[in-house]
């Protein structure tokens, strides 16, 4: 983890309000593990003080990129960032995804920016498996070509049926679970809205499989100091304790998570 003044080298519109921001960050980039994030200080944000967390989409050759959607004050202001400007980053942060266990078939499940958050995991996984992508409409489905280029089979669902199957991502997921045959033991890696994570956790629990979920929580410090981003995690004695999503997370084994919020 370190502070770095990164320099923007590319900033382009992707689709559906998503933008790709590529930065020179020679300090942070070589340290990145799949599923980690950076805490970004948005310039020109006036009276808004807090940094914003973004999953690291790609990292390599001294560069970092994020894929973000404009949804509020900070991300709307980010739209106007220009190549050449510097950005103050803290990273890489969080624990990241583990390497898929041997004898399992990795299954990625993503909604929204989850597709970006899972890309590095897809690239480094020793075995290619399936990737299940969900969104409201076709514009929300990102990076399919890139996952396919890595050798992943991508299955898609959209709420309005404009791409892939009509419905939630769980529709394509359940279809596959029903067909896959008992010899295939999936291990899930999921990032997206919390209800989606819970749905994946339920399926993993029912099948007796492992699921790793990357939890989204509002953040403040991003480094574990303020205790804003806490998530209830089960303890061996049957109780629970808070874990900091920015420090002990954002990735948790789904059976540990208490899904009550």
């Amino acid at each position: 983890m370190q502070l770095e003044e990164a320099r923007i080298v590319q900033h382009t519109e992707v689709q559906g309000g998503y933008r790709l921001l590529v930065m020179d960050a020679p300090g942070i980039a070589p340290q990145v593990k799949p599923g980690q994030f950076v805490h970004l200080k948005v310039p020109h944000l006036g009276e808004a003080l807090l940094r914003r967390p973004f999953s690291i989409f790609k990292a390599g050759e001294g560069r970092l990129s994020i894929l973000y959607k404009s949804i509020g004050q900070g991300t709307n202001t980010m739209k106007y960032l220009q190549p050449g400007e510097s950005l103050d980053l803290i990273g890489p942060l969080g624990n990241g995804f583990p390497i898929p266990a041997e004898d399992t078939l990795p299954a990625l499940v993503a909604g929204g920016y989850g597709m970006a958050a899972l890309y590095l995991a897809a690239r480094t996984a020793p075995v290619r498996g399936l990737a299940f992508f969900g969104g409201r409409k076709s514009d929300d489905i990102l990076c399919v070509d890139e996952f396919e280029a890595l050798g992943w089979e991508v299955r898609i669902a959209t709420d309005d049926g404009t791409r892939g199957k009509k419905g939630l991502v769980t529709a394509v997921l359940d279809e596959w679970i029903g067909q896959k045959g008992p010899a295939v033991v999936p291990e899930f890696f999921a990032c997206g809205p919390n209800p989606m994570l819970k749905a994946v956790a339920d399926r993993a629990a029912a099948g007796g499989w492992k699921a790793w979920v990357s939890v989204d929580r509002n953040m403040c410090c991003g480094v574990g100091a303020c205790l804003t981003c806490v998530q209830k995690i089960r303890t061996p004695d049957g109780g629970w304790t808070w874990h900091r999503v920015c420090r002990e997370g954002p990735v948790f084994e789904s059976r540990e998570v208490v899904w009550d919020e």
Binding site: L49, N218, C220, E261
Partner: peptide, 12 residues
């Protein structure tokens, strides 16, 4: 319980 912080104008 969460949420535990909220950003407001010039503060938290």
């Amino acid at each position: 319980p969460t949420p535990r912080t909220v950003e407001v104008t010039s503060g938290l």
